[in-house]
Simulated assay, not measured.
Amino acid sequence: MSKEMLNALDALEAEKGVSKEIVIEALEAALVSAYKRHYGQAQNVVVEFEQKKGNIHVYAVKEVTEEVMDSQLEVSLKDALLINPAYEIGDTIRFEVTPKDFGRIAAQTAKQVILQRVREAERDIIYNEFSAYEKDIMQGIVERQDHRYIYVNLGKIEAVLSKQDQMPNEFYQPHDRIKVYVARVEKSSKGPQVFVSRSHPDLLRRLFEQEVPEVYDGIVEIISIAREAGDRSKIAVHSMDENIDPVGTCVGPKGQRVQAIVNELKGENMDIVEWNDDPAIYIANALNPAQVVDVIFDPTNSKACTVVVPDYQLSLAIGKRGQNARLAAKLTGFKIDIKSESDMASFYEQEAEKSDEIIASDMTADDYENMEFNEAETEALEEAEAVEEAEVVEETE
Rank of each mutant, 00 (worst) to 15 (best):
E4D: 12
M5E: 07
L9H: 02
A11K: 06
K16Y: 08
K16F: 08
S19T: 11
S19I: 15
V23F: 05
I24V: 14
L27A: 12
L31W: 03
Y35G: 00
Y35F: 12
R37K: 14
Y39H: 08
V47G: 01
K52E: 13
V61W: 10
L73F: 03
S76A: 09
L82N: 04
I83F: 03
P85A: 15
I93P: 04
R104C: 07
V113G: 05
L115N: 09
Q116I: 09
R117A: 08
V118R: 05
D124T: 07
A132Q: 08
G140D: 13
V142M: 07
S162E: 05
K163D: 04
Q164A: 15
N169T: 15
V180R: 02
S189Q: 12
Q193C: 07
R205A: 09
V212C: 01
V215L: 14
D217N: 15
A226D: 05
V247K: 00
G248R: 06
D271R: 04
A284P: 00
D298C: 14
A304F: 12
P310V: 15
P310F: 05
L314Y: 03
G319C: 11
L327T: 03
K335R: 11
S340T: 13
Y348H: 11
Y348P: 00
E351P: 03
E353S: 13
E353R: 12
K354S: 04
S355H: 02
D356C: 04
E357I: 13
Y368W: 15
E369I: 15
E372L: 13
E379Q: 12
E379D: 13
E379C: 05
A380C: 11
V393D: 11
E394Q: 09
